[in-house]
Design a protein around this nucleic acid. Sequence first.
DNA 1: ATCGCGATTGTCT
DNA 2: GACAATCGCGATT
Length: 203
Amino acid sequence: MAQKPKSTRATAPRLGKQLKRSFFDRSVHEVAPDLIGTTFLVNGVGGIIVEVEAYHQGEPAAHSYRGPTPRNQVMFGPPGFSYVYRSYGIHWCVNFVCEGAGTASAVLIRALEPTHGIAAMARRRGLDDVRALCSGPGKLCEALGITIAESELALDRPPLALYARAETPDIVTGVRIGITKAVELPWRYGVKGSKFLSKPFAR
DNA sequence: ATCGCGATTGTCT
DNA sequence: GACAATCGCGATT
Protein backbone atom coordinates (compact mmCIF):
# COMPACT_ATOMS: atom_id res chain seq x y z
CA MET A 1 0.00 0.00 0.00
CA ALA A 2 1.23 3.47 -0.83
CA GLN A 3 1.83 5.62 2.22
CA LYS A 4 -0.33 8.73 2.40
CA PRO A 5 1.82 11.89 2.64
CA LYS A 6 2.03 13.33 6.12
CA SER A 7 0.18 16.58 6.67
CA THR A 8 2.91 18.07 8.87
CA ARG A 9 6.62 18.57 8.36
CA ALA A 10 9.13 16.22 9.95
CA THR A 11 11.39 19.12 10.93
CA ALA A 12 10.82 22.84 11.43
CA PRO A 13 11.35 24.83 8.22
CA ARG A 14 14.28 27.22 8.12
CA LEU A 15 13.41 30.74 9.23
CA GLY A 16 13.55 33.72 6.86
CA LYS A 17 14.80 37.19 7.66
CA GLN A 18 13.42 38.67 10.88
CA LEU A 19 10.81 41.41 10.35
CA LYS A 20 11.41 44.81 11.90
CA ARG A 21 8.77 46.90 13.62
CA SER A 22 8.67 49.20 10.57
CA PHE A 23 6.90 46.39 8.69
CA PHE A 24 3.78 47.53 10.55
CA ASP A 25 4.03 51.24 9.72
CA ARG A 26 1.57 50.87 6.81
CA SER A 27 -2.16 50.55 6.28
CA VAL A 28 -3.66 47.61 8.15
CA HIS A 29 -5.13 46.54 4.81
CA GLU A 30 -1.62 46.06 3.40
CA VAL A 31 -0.11 44.54 6.52
CA ALA A 32 -2.86 41.96 7.14
CA PRO A 33 -2.43 40.03 3.86
CA ASP A 34 1.35 40.48 4.04
CA LEU A 35 1.40 38.69 7.40
CA ILE A 36 -0.05 35.54 5.85
CA GLY A 37 2.81 33.07 5.46
CA THR A 38 5.14 34.75 7.93
CA THR A 39 6.29 32.85 11.01
CA PHE A 40 5.37 34.06 14.51
CA LEU A 41 7.32 32.73 17.49
CA VAL A 42 7.13 33.42 21.22
CA ASN A 43 10.27 32.23 22.96
CA GLY A 44 10.99 30.11 19.90
CA VAL A 45 7.58 28.43 19.87
CA GLY A 46 4.92 28.98 17.21
CA GLY A 47 4.35 28.61 13.49
CA ILE A 48 3.27 30.03 10.15
CA ILE A 49 0.45 32.58 10.25
CA VAL A 50 -2.37 31.16 8.12
CA GLU A 51 -5.32 33.37 9.16
CA VAL A 52 -5.72 37.00 10.30
CA GLU A 53 -8.34 39.75 10.48
CA ALA A 54 -7.96 43.52 10.09
CA TYR A 55 -9.57 46.00 12.50
CA HIS A 56 -9.60 49.77 12.08
CA GLN A 57 -10.78 52.67 14.23
CA GLY A 58 -13.33 53.85 11.67
CA GLU A 59 -15.41 50.68 11.93
CA PRO A 60 -17.61 49.62 14.88
CA ALA A 61 -16.24 46.10 15.37
CA ALA A 62 -12.84 47.53 16.36
CA HIS A 63 -12.00 47.88 20.04
CA SER A 64 -10.63 51.34 19.18
CA TYR A 65 -13.92 52.53 17.65
CA ARG A 66 -15.03 54.56 20.68
CA GLY A 67 -11.67 56.11 21.36
CA PRO A 68 -8.80 55.34 23.77
CA THR A 69 -9.42 53.47 27.03
CA PRO A 70 -7.00 51.80 29.43
CA ARG A 71 -7.51 48.49 27.65
CA ASN A 72 -7.02 49.62 24.06
CA GLN A 73 -4.49 52.43 24.53
CA VAL A 74 -1.70 50.49 22.80
CA MET A 75 -3.76 50.58 19.58
CA PHE A 76 -3.36 54.37 19.62
CA GLY A 77 0.41 54.19 20.01
CA PRO A 78 3.22 53.43 17.56
CA PRO A 79 2.97 50.43 15.19
CA GLY A 80 4.78 47.15 15.72
CA PHE A 81 3.56 46.32 19.22
CA SER A 82 1.35 43.56 20.59
CA TYR A 83 -2.18 44.13 21.89
CA VAL A 84 -3.53 41.24 23.98
CA TYR A 85 -7.09 41.23 25.31
CA ARG A 86 -9.24 38.78 27.22
CA SER A 87 -12.07 37.24 25.22
CA TYR A 88 -15.29 36.02 26.82
CA GLY A 89 -13.63 36.14 30.22
CA ILE A 90 -11.65 33.01 29.39
CA HIS A 91 -9.33 33.23 26.41
CA TRP A 92 -6.50 35.56 25.38
CA CYS A 93 -6.26 36.92 21.85
CA VAL A 94 -3.29 38.72 20.28
CA ASN A 95 -3.17 41.57 17.76
CA PHE A 96 -0.34 43.38 16.00
CA VAL A 97 -0.74 47.19 16.01
CA CYS A 98 -0.39 48.87 12.59
CA GLU A 99 0.16 52.41 11.27
CA GLY A 100 1.22 55.27 13.46
CA ALA A 101 -0.64 58.56 13.70
CA GLY A 102 -3.79 57.59 15.52
CA THR A 103 -5.52 55.29 13.06
CA ALA A 104 -5.77 52.78 15.89
CA SER A 105 -5.69 49.75 13.63
CA ALA A 106 -4.51 46.21 14.37
CA VAL A 107 -4.37 42.72 12.92
CA LEU A 108 -5.93 39.90 14.98
CA ILE A 109 -3.87 36.70 14.64
CA ARG A 110 -6.42 33.91 14.22
CA ALA A 111 -4.54 30.73 13.30
CA LEU A 112 -1.07 29.26 12.84
CA GLU A 113 0.32 26.18 11.18
CA PRO A 114 2.46 24.81 14.05
CA THR A 115 6.13 24.42 13.08
CA HIS A 116 8.35 25.22 16.09
CA GLY A 117 8.05 23.71 19.57
CA ILE A 118 5.14 21.44 18.75
CA ALA A 119 5.72 19.36 21.90
CA ALA A 120 5.56 22.48 24.10
CA MET A 121 2.37 23.62 22.39
CA ALA A 122 0.77 20.19 22.73
CA ARG A 123 1.60 20.18 26.44
CA ARG A 124 0.08 23.62 27.03
CA ARG A 125 -3.04 22.74 25.06
CA GLY A 126 -3.41 19.26 26.54
CA LEU A 127 -3.82 17.95 22.98
CA ASP A 128 -2.12 15.65 20.55
CA ASP A 129 -3.76 16.80 17.32
CA VAL A 130 -1.42 19.25 15.53
CA ARG A 131 -4.31 20.57 13.46
CA ALA A 132 -6.13 21.72 16.60
CA LEU A 133 -3.19 23.31 18.43
CA CYS A 134 -3.41 26.81 16.92
CA SER A 135 -6.63 26.81 14.84
CA GLY A 136 -8.23 29.80 16.55
CA PRO A 137 -7.20 33.05 18.25
CA GLY A 138 -7.69 31.73 21.78
CA LYS A 139 -6.09 28.39 20.98
CA LEU A 140 -2.89 29.86 19.57
CA CYS A 141 -2.44 32.13 22.59
CA GLU A 142 -2.72 29.13 24.89
CA ALA A 143 -0.30 27.15 22.72
CA LEU A 144 2.27 29.96 22.63
CA GLY A 145 1.84 30.92 26.29
CA ILE A 146 0.50 34.40 25.48
CA THR A 147 -1.28 36.29 28.27
CA ILE A 148 -1.74 39.96 29.21
CA ALA A 149 1.94 39.84 30.23
CA GLU A 150 2.79 39.69 26.51
CA SER A 151 0.72 42.79 25.68
CA GLU A 152 2.33 46.08 24.64
CA LEU A 153 5.61 44.37 23.72
CA ALA A 154 7.70 45.21 20.64
CA LEU A 155 7.22 42.60 17.92
CA ASP A 156 10.93 42.57 16.98
CA ARG A 157 12.38 41.96 20.44
CA PRO A 158 12.42 38.86 22.62
CA PRO A 159 10.27 37.07 23.58
CA LEU A 160 8.44 37.97 20.33
CA ALA A 161 9.73 37.44 16.79
CA LEU A 162 8.39 37.42 13.23
CA TYR A 163 10.14 35.99 10.18
CA ALA A 164 9.59 36.70 6.47
CA ARG A 165 7.83 34.11 4.36
CA ALA A 166 9.75 31.94 1.93
CA GLU A 167 7.09 31.91 -0.77
CA THR A 168 3.92 33.88 -1.34
CA PRO A 169 0.96 31.64 -0.55
CA ASP A 170 -2.39 31.81 -2.35
CA ILE A 171 -4.42 34.16 -0.17
CA VAL A 172 -8.20 34.09 0.16
CA THR A 173 -10.44 36.69 1.82
CA GLY A 174 -13.79 36.62 3.57
CA VAL A 175 -15.93 38.23 6.23
CA ARG A 176 -14.68 38.33 9.81
CA ILE A 177 -15.75 35.75 12.38
CA GLY A 178 -17.49 36.06 15.73
CA ILE A 179 -18.48 39.73 15.51
CA THR A 180 -21.90 41.36 15.49
CA LYS A 181 -21.01 44.78 14.02
CA ALA A 182 -19.63 45.61 10.57
CA VAL A 183 -20.16 41.95 9.70
CA GLU A 184 -20.05 42.60 5.95
CA LEU A 185 -16.46 43.87 5.69
CA PRO A 186 -14.23 41.29 3.91
CA TRP A 187 -11.25 41.86 6.16
CA ARG A 188 -10.39 38.22 6.97
CA TYR A 189 -7.37 36.78 5.15
CA GLY A 190 -6.08 33.21 4.99
CA VAL A 191 -3.99 30.65 3.18
CA LYS A 192 -6.10 29.01 0.49
CA GLY A 193 -6.91 25.42 1.43
CA SER A 194 -4.93 25.38 4.67
CA LYS A 195 -5.90 22.64 7.11
CA PHE A 196 -4.95 24.87 10.06
CA LEU A 197 -7.68 27.54 9.77
CA SER A 198 -10.15 28.30 12.56
CA LYS A 199 -12.93 27.84 9.98
CA PRO A 200 -12.92 27.23 6.24
CA PHE A 201 -13.38 30.19 3.92
CA ALA A 202 -16.65 30.12 1.95
CA ARG A 203 -16.28 29.12 -1.70
C1' DA B 1 -21.75 18.85 9.13
C1' DT B 2 -24.28 22.06 11.99
C1' DC B 3 -26.49 23.76 16.29
C1' DG B 4 -26.97 25.05 21.03
C1' DC B 5 -25.05 25.87 25.30
C1' DG B 6 -22.22 26.94 29.47
C1' DA B 7 -17.94 28.78 31.25
C1' DT B 8 -16.03 33.28 33.20
C1' DT B 9 -14.45 38.19 33.77
C1' DG B 10 -12.85 42.70 32.09
C1' DT B 11 -14.87 46.59 30.09
C1' DC B 12 -18.01 50.02 29.14
C1' DT B 13 -22.97 52.10 29.39
C1' DG C 1 -26.07 45.18 34.29
C1' DA C 2 -25.18 43.74 29.52
C1' DC C 3 -22.18 42.05 26.62
C1' DA C 4 -18.09 40.13 24.20
C1' DA C 5 -12.76 39.83 17.94
C1' DT C 6 -14.03 32.01 21.86
C1' DC C 7 -13.89 27.19 22.81
C1' DG C 8 -15.18 22.42 23.64
C1' DC C 9 -18.72 19.29 24.18
C1' DG C 10 -22.88 16.84 23.39
C1' DA C 11 -27.14 16.31 20.69
C1' DT C 12 -29.09 16.17 16.42
C1' DT C 13 -29.57 16.08 11.04
